[in-house]
Design a protein around this nucleic acid. Structure first.
Lengths: 349, 349
DNA sequence: CATGACTTCACAAACGATTGTGATAACCTA
DNA sequence: TAGGTTATCACAATCGTTTGTGAAGTCATG
């Protein structure tokens, strides 16, 4: 591997001049700079990352932690992160957190060994509190996506989940539905609680009474969407629409409805949340609430990079993105909206 | 950050002794080693990765390149890689290749800046030839997953796609089907060509004539599976079964069949390839050929790590994994197997 | 012509580890 | 007790950069 010394020897100057020339720093004659740049290219020189890191104390890499990078949900976020990273010369170092237990290893590898300049944490498990506060304690700059901590030392980027739950439910109400069920996510996660809030807010506004037996809790995975829908299908009077807290569970719900011999959206309208890549490919294509994932990833990376380049700007930035309703074929007007409920449910049995 | 010198000063020895003590090397008294280890822990010492890399010339990280890390297909491979990496003290540095154009950047960042000790390339685009030979030229140890290059300088791990195509088709033949269609992948990719070979081999063995109009080419994505199936549905006599070269296209095929008002598997049996996480959740659950992805990732990492630790062992290892047929609900016996084809197709029209 | 201000470069000290070599002390053997 | 071996450690070089400082050389100004 060709080093800075090789170039220095070749050109006939000292290594320090080569370094300054290559980094466009003040204090080297323009003609010699050009000669240096030229021979550096000819000799195929590339600066050694470790050596540079050792003296500059910057790794030019950003650690990214998420539950499972293979989750299709993260795809857009990753692309946003990558765009900004490559734009600003940073490398991304991904690591799955899976269980919280593993996170300690991740921290040790990334922060303690000083492999990263900062971190971006996407989503995260319930037990991440201790993890994040260890970041704060160590003084590592970081940004959290999909969480809205009030802590003024944290930079957060998230989507307005209350609004998301609201517009999803409002859409169903606008379609004339009044018996609207809700399959929630894991309710001790803020995201799920907020979507439930939005659901209730829309009901309130429309003057529809909240009925607890139309709300079933899931855990954000297919299987719980499926079983929750099974439960709802046994509830009388039957709902005519359901707002599901994410698309994975909505897929499960679609399956449960199909198995019951009912049709979406004719018998039951379904709204999901996330707008996964697959959501436009279901049968029927799923109406859902899209999160601006690319933008969230992009902004998170920009925020962190800016924080790294200007430490004086401090932390505590909060960015809240609005969600967007994507109307597809899984929702339609309630055909029974003018009829007494008793008759409606009777027809179904 | 506490360094090795801090510990040395604290304990009253020289830095070199601390290094040897912490790395369990010969030449330090057992009592002082214990004291050093103890105070290192107390002071919260963690070795600086850059400094260590600079002198040992090892980064203890492995670069991983794949088309798009968010593809669910890669999930199992990643888990296999991660398992071995964390087991053997390596860190994984992921990078998407997307278009081949981007790859040059990736190479430069990873190899040229000497950020990685070796690389693992998963799948890959058609244009990766130049890329890979640049790796060979630079002497970077690497392993390719999902490709079977004959080049004795390359380490390859792949699944037997000919056998995969064979067992998929054989399964349909065993169900009594004789008019078996095939939706291929991008045929200039070896994987797709091999699956087609397996398909033909099974037909040959069963004495079923190969008919070109039952083979439609796709590009491994949903949309082409959908449109290819549309084409096949217009072909007469109609096929009673179809082997699709991957699950994503099979999902598209299922959709096309459903839209045509036909039922899977009653009217048409469908076999996919890959066994994605979602494949068990379709309606009906998809019969498919599973690739041992976890094992492939695991073996790739093991192979590379072993190659890094023992350079003398050289390259050229080839590992071929067998695929496995997963029978679900999308295939069944051909109800028309004893009837003349003319009648069969007549019924469908 | 002397003084000062630039320009351009070389020198050397870091950064935080690893590792070869040599020095000291301890121990053993004959 | 002399000579030799061994255990334990300190010293210093090194990895490939960056960066502060000082030494020339150039130039202009009064």
């Amino acid at each position: 591997m060709v080093t800075i010394k090789d170039i220095a020897r070749h050109v006939g100057v000292s290594p320090s001049v080569v370094s300054r020339a290559l980094n466009n720093k003040y204090g080297v004659k323009e003609s010699t700079r050009q000669m240096i740049v030229q021979t550096a290219k000819e000799m195929g020189y590339h600066p050694n990352a470790a050596a540079r890191t050792l003296v500059t104390r910057r790794t030019m890499t950003i650690g990214v932690i998420m539950a499972d990078i293979s989750e299709p949900f993260y795809s857009g976020i990753i692309k946003g992160l990558e765009f900004v990273a490559s734009e600003s010369g940073y490398t991304l170092l991904f690591s799955n957190s899976y269980e919280s237990l593993e996170q300690s290893r991740v921290v040790q590898r990334m922060i303690d060994a000083q492999r990263v300049d900062g971190m971006i944490i996407v989503g995260s498990n319930v037990k991440e509190k201790a993890y994040i506060s260890s970041l704060v304690d160590k003084g590592t700059p970081f940004v959290v996506i999909e969480r809205s901590y009030r802590d003024p030392r944290m930079n957060c980027i998230w989507v307005d989940n209350v609004m998301g739950g609201y517009i999803a439910t409002k859409h169903l109400i606008d379609c004339g539905h009044t018996r609207i069920a809700h399959i929630t996510g894991t309710l001790d996660v803020e995201v799920a609680a907020d979507r439930l809030k939005g659901y209730r807010k829309a009901l309130d506004e429309a003057g529809i009474a909240f009925s607890p037996n139309l709300v079933v809790q899931g855990t954000f995975v297919w299987q719980t969407g499926y079983s929750a829908m099974k439960t709802l299908l046994e509830t009388r009077p039957l709902c005519t629409a359901v707002f599901v807290a994410n698309d994975s569970m909505a897929f499960g719900a679609l399956q449960a409805i199909a198995e019951a011999g009912l049709s979406v959206p004719h018998d039951i309208s379904v709204v999901g949340f996330d707008d996964l890549q697959f959501s436009s490919l279901t049968n029927p294509p799923l109406t859902t609430v899209r999160q601006p994932r690319y933008e969230m990833g992009r902004d998170a990376a920009r925020l962190l990079v800016s924080r790294l380049n200007h430490p004086e700007q401090g932390d505590g930035t909060k960015i809240c993105h609005p969600p967007e309703l994507i109307v597809r074929k899984s929702t339609t007007v309630c055909r029974d909206s003018d009829q007494p409920e008793a008759i409606v449910t009777q027809q179904r049995q």
